[in-house]
Write a protein that binds this DNA or RNA. Structure first.
Lengths: 339, 339
DNA sequence: AATAGAAACGTGCACGTGCACGGAATGAAA
DNA sequence: TTTCATTCCGTGCACGTGCACGTTTCTATT
């Protein structure tokens, strides 16, 4: 690997000049610059990462993470990934501040401002889907504070990267699993959180698309909304099962899986109903192990937490963006055996 | 984060002395050492990783990778992970040499010796299961050349880490999928590579264990060995299907999946037979997409290739071992939708 | 008490990069 | 020719660590 020093020697100039050319900060004669660029190209110069990070940590890096409070157990898992990366980055003299807030545009804006006043160098954000947030992200970008979105993306914003699921594909996969795990006439009920939330409707669309294309033996009987709430979910699912005794499959496209399963058990239908769900929080892990939930599709919360921070850190130290702006985590299927 | 310099100043000694104490290379008065250790503990000193890597690359690191030649397409995927990491590590002035050899103890020993004569600082190895190899690994360890095993582990050896599947668990998961994806009386045929190969028998044992415990509707009709060869696999599977017309499920526990599927299609049984297999090489990806293979369990070859090198590099630069000696890759289920 | 020898410790360089400061060369105007 | 400003470029330090070398202090022996 070529170093700046080597290039400088070959070009007969000093390291400083090479640095100016490579990071084009001007004040170099065109002829000299050309010569240096030529040599750099010939030697295939790539900046040494250890050197970059070392130089970058003159200023002790401060990163901020904003995600939703742990009313949602999913974010506990994301947090584990954040914690892991926090510890790792600590070894690079980089500190990570975490703020868990309610899912609320105003609070989110306030949290961002607070981080700015604390002079963080970059932010990982699970954005609320509002134009104010998108505008704020662009402001931050202009101020030189890069933002990485995690779990949920946001349109019309110059976030440097997104780390999370492809929700439509996850829905399709859920449909595929239900298709493979059922035979004969199937009457499927679908439980989603809310039709207002993009992630939920994306999954729903994917599911319907797959069923429609490949599995005509499955008929969608009813779609209900449980607001991601277990109590609500219990009652609505119970009502659904009573109203449609022919239902023999359920797809939980979002939260409230625990409450829904409880309703299935309360009706003693757990052997008659094939349940497909998402994620594998501790609360429902037992249901997966016992086969009450046949399969679940996970969005790798740990990876989301750790990777988003990693991307931000690399951007700030090495000035390096990931190849893909959209870093989709794999659609991860779990059944009783590999949960 | 505390630095050596800070500790030195607080202890009223020089950086060199602190270095000697922290890396206990002796020649420091007990009282001084104690004082330094105390301060280091109080400040929670952790060596800075960027500094470590920078210091380590005075000697240009050379790593060696030995895996089996691409007669086996699985290792092409592993190679992609190796290539990725190779490029990344290049940015740390670390070069990676790769050697693909036949699955043969003598050749493997020769390849190792060759790497040693080229003065590599560490080796990633897919080991042949032979005591000579284990002994060689221990020799290398004593010479200060650490070895990370990938894909297959080896007993009684002081490899610093293993990166690969838990084969028994993967087999159990295959059983679980077949159980979930079939109804009624099932007669299952099993095709493995060889009973001599530990990975294959581990998967088989896991599969049988799961079926025996949870899915009495599945009866294992016959177990055949195809030596991981597609031509062999085609003929044997064809014979199997002819001999047992009642077979309506197949588990391919190892290679030769392509040949086996071809036999199923040749018999026009693809709609009657539920096929579960492992891995998703390009060759069989079409079968997965078309639903001829209902599900496949992957061992994340890319991760195996990249992670093993990463562990080795971290060990050599930061002197850091992963928390777990056994780094199992997740049991990764794929169906048509998420392949 | 003198001296050798060992133990204990300090100093400086290397690793690769970024950046501030200052010096040298160049050109234009007086 | 001198003066001045601008462009261009070299030098040195910082970041954190490891290690070779050199120097000082202590202990033991004559």
């Amino acid at each position: 690997m070529a170093t700046i020093k080597e290039i400088a020697e070959l070009a007969g100039v000093s390291r400083g000049t090479v640095d100016r050319v490579l990071n084009n900060r001007g004040s170099v004669r065109a002829k000299t610059a050309e010569k240096i660029l030529e040599i750099a190209k010939a030697l295939d110069y790539k900046p040494n990462k250890a050197g970059l990070t070392l130089a970058a940590q003159k200023r002790r890096l401060k990163l901020g993470v904003i995600l939703f409070e742990n009313s949602n157990p999913f974010f506990d898992e994301v947090m584990k990934g954040v914690r892991y990366q926090q510890q790792r980055l600590n070894g690079y003299n980089c500190s990570v501040l975490v703020r868990q807030i309610a899912q609320n545009v105003q609070q989110q804006l306030a949290a961002i401002d607070d981080f700015v006043s604390q002079e963080v160098h970059g932010i990982v954000l699970v954005p609320c889907n509002a134009p104010e947030i998108a505008r704020k992200i662009n402001e931050l970008y202009d101020m030189g504070i890069p933002v990485v979105t995690a779990n949920t993306d946001i349109e019309h914003s110059r976030r440097i990267a997104y780390v999370g699921s492809n929700y439509f594909l996850a829905g399709e996969t859920a449909g595929g699993l239900m298709g493979l795990m059922t035979k004969g006439d199937i009457h499927a009920g679908i439980v989603i959180g809310s039709r207002q939330i993009l992630c939920h409707t994306d999954r729903l669309a994917g599911f319907q698309s797959c069923i429609g294309k490949k599995y005509p033996h499955i008929r969608i009987t009813s779609i209900i909304e449980n607001q991601d709430d277990d109590v609500e979910s219990f009652h609505l699912t119970e009502k659904l099962l009573q109203e449609y005794p022919q239902i023999n499959a359920l797809y939980f496209a979002a939260g409230g899986v625990y409450g829904g399963c409880k309703a299935v058990i309360a009706q003693n239908r757990q052997h008659a109903v094939t349940v497909i769900a998402h994620d594998k929080m501790d609360k429902i892990r037992g249901f997966i192990r016992d086969g009450i939930i046949s399969a679940t599709i996970c969005q790798q919360p740990f990876v989301q937490g750790s990777k988003s921070l990693d991307i931000l850190f690399n951007y700030l130290t090495a000035g390096e963006l990931p190849e893909k702006e959209l870093n989709f985590v794999a659609v991860d299927i779990r059944i009783a055996e590999n949960v």
